[in-house]
Design a protein around this nucleic acid. Structure first.
Lengths: 335, 335
DNA sequence: TTGTATGCGTTATCAG
DNA sequence: CTGATAACGCATACAA
């Protein structure tokens, strides 16, 4: 920087002013400086800048696992709007481990990011970790789910409603023995989906046997195990609402192994509407949840907060949409 | 930091020494300092540290698009070993746009990362951008593909060999009219796969019509278009080697739309062995390429470089493995 | 061994 | 409007 200052025959302060546009600089000086910058290939040190300003242009994003196909979309959403706002995203995977989450959070903060986007781990104590959301504290927005007693900004999908619609779809096809593979009970999105499932049943006056509700982690293997349990029960449920598509995939696999035909013997509907669902056999009916938009919306929200927007915490809920394909049919008639 | 210094009744330098273990500090002072650190919840500023040391504990990772299902695995591989080495990963998507790649690279460098992991964009001029790999320059390792005239470290899959095996599999089933949907010709992995395909044909003394080689971008839509072209040709090829699974998926879709049965009418084999391939109808045969290991290996390599390991550039090639499922059958007999 | 002082590259304040 | 100067928080060379 001092190199370019002397090259352009101006002082450091002036250089800084033209770089940041802090204060108008006389035209001819400006061009001299710009010239020098270009010719020397100067890049301001984000470290020094961050140190001085006590804030960088990084957005910390912590998610459970980029390997879960639902998350890349939301990451992309975040990154795209962040990039346009000239923010950068640093990504961390917590593996749903609250300890790892905390470690990342601590470390991230020592980099003075402009904000934090987080998809909380299963038993996150994010709220405690971050302390009360004082106006001066770091901007944080949660995506997809909220930790226990989270009072800050969040953007989520209409989990309850989506699950309700999915279940109604099953009901409309004539099913009465519905089961669900629900997600971890300490994940808000999972409990919301379960609530939607229950509400739809209740609306029809249907009771559900407790063993028809299988709790699982949001991955395929877990779905597979739960489905095997479900499909081994007597009487066997005729339809399964899986709280996400990975779970549904596991269920599909289990049905296949048991020689059960989906959808003739067992109907399955998922949640997320992963691309993969278009290709499965049978194509998986599912509830679309706008991952990319959730990420983008969260990023926009946090950019506003960073720019100083005040106001109470926002809870943004994006609509879901049921996508009917071939994994749901009327229940077998032979019973 | 000065807070904890006075709290522990020592000087700043001493605090620094216990934090970094630079210089032994007398036992009782050490515990006093540690105590103070804990009680004040002190976190060293990575910004200041980075500024001073002229290097941080961040690894910049730039990839084309996290939304491509092959990449999350390699990102996870990188991140896991980075985390263990107490490095952090900042992730950037280039969309295969060399300009965006360059922008990210420039910006990343101004954060003084410890190293850079990059899956180069399609027409990346990474080599030029980074300059010659002087011993003192930033550690960089390429993954999955190399930019034009890249002379540095790289870890890749055995693309040529994998493609060769896939093609031989097709050949062994009796196919003689083989087509390929190959990737962008400026991507090294794509040209290697095409080379493997060609070598297998040549070994059998088979000629290939130029129009049976369709170049496409590595995404499903592109694969779909190319497959429609291919499947409309007369004579129609009886087997397609798709240079990645996304392409193969597009081909599957195209076949379906055209009322062609895979594998009876048309055999398809892909590359990557994405999870999704297990679920498609028919299940997709493919060439497994160890994404996670590639990422992990690259990260280990770069950590070694960061620690000062000298020696000439390494080109690490990880083996592929053919995974046979149901999308390949002998060619239709009626011809 | 421990303390002190200097500088890393910026921005911000303030006096010209 | 411009230029000099003081922090920002830490690591290190050097003095004690």
């Amino acid at each position: 920087m001092k190199q370019i200052a002397e090259r352009a025959q101006v002082s450091l302060g002036t250089v800084s002013n033209v770089v940041n546009g802090t204060i108008p600089v006389r035209q001819h000086l400006r061009v001299r400086v710009l010239e020098a910058i270009r010719s020397l290939g100067y890049q301001p040190s984000q470290l020094a800048r961050g140190l001085r300003r006590n804030s960088t242009n990084m957005l910390g994003m912590v998610i459970p696992d980029i390997t879960n196909p639902f998350f890349p979309g939301v990451v992309r959403g975040v990154e795209d709007v962040a990039f346009k706002g000239s923010y950068r995203v640093v990504l961390c995977n917590t593996d749903n481990d609250p300890a790892k989450e905390q470690a990342y959070l601590d470390e991230l903060r020592s980099y003075r990011p402009a904000g934090l986007l987080v998809i909380p781990a299963a038993e996150s104590n994010l709220a405690a970790e971050l302390g009360p959301p004082t106006p001066s504290s770091l901007a944080v927005v949660c995506i997809d789910r909220r930790p226990a007693d989270w009072k800050g900004d969040a953007v989520m999908a209409a989990n309850e409603e989506g699950a309700f619609q999915a279940t109604e779809h099953l009901l409309n096809m004539g099913h009465t023995r519905l089961a669900t593979i629900c997600g971890p009970s300490h994940l808000t999105n999972a409990v919301e989906r379960l609530a939607g499932f229950r509400r739809a049943l209740a609306k029809q006056g249907l009771k559900i046997a407790p063993e028809y509700i299988q709790e699982a982690k949001f991955d395929r293997e877990s779905g597979h195990r739960s489905a095997r349990r479900l499909l081994g029960m007597l009487p066997r449920p005729t339809a399964i609402f899986a709280a996400n598509d990975l779970l549904a995939l596991g269920a599909l696999l289990a049905a296949r192994e048991l020689g059960l035909n989906c959808p003739k013997d067992i109907s399955i509907i998922g949640f997320d509407n992963l691309d993969i669902g278009m290709f499965t056999d049978p194509a998986l009916s599912s509830v679309y949840q706008p991952g990319y938009q959730m990420g983008a919306r969260a990023a926009r929200l946090i950019l506003e907060r960073i720019k100083g927007k005040k106001g109470r915490a926002q809870q943004i809920v994006l609509p879901t949409e049921i996508r009917i394909r071939n994994s749901v049919a009327p229940p077998p008639s032979d019973e």
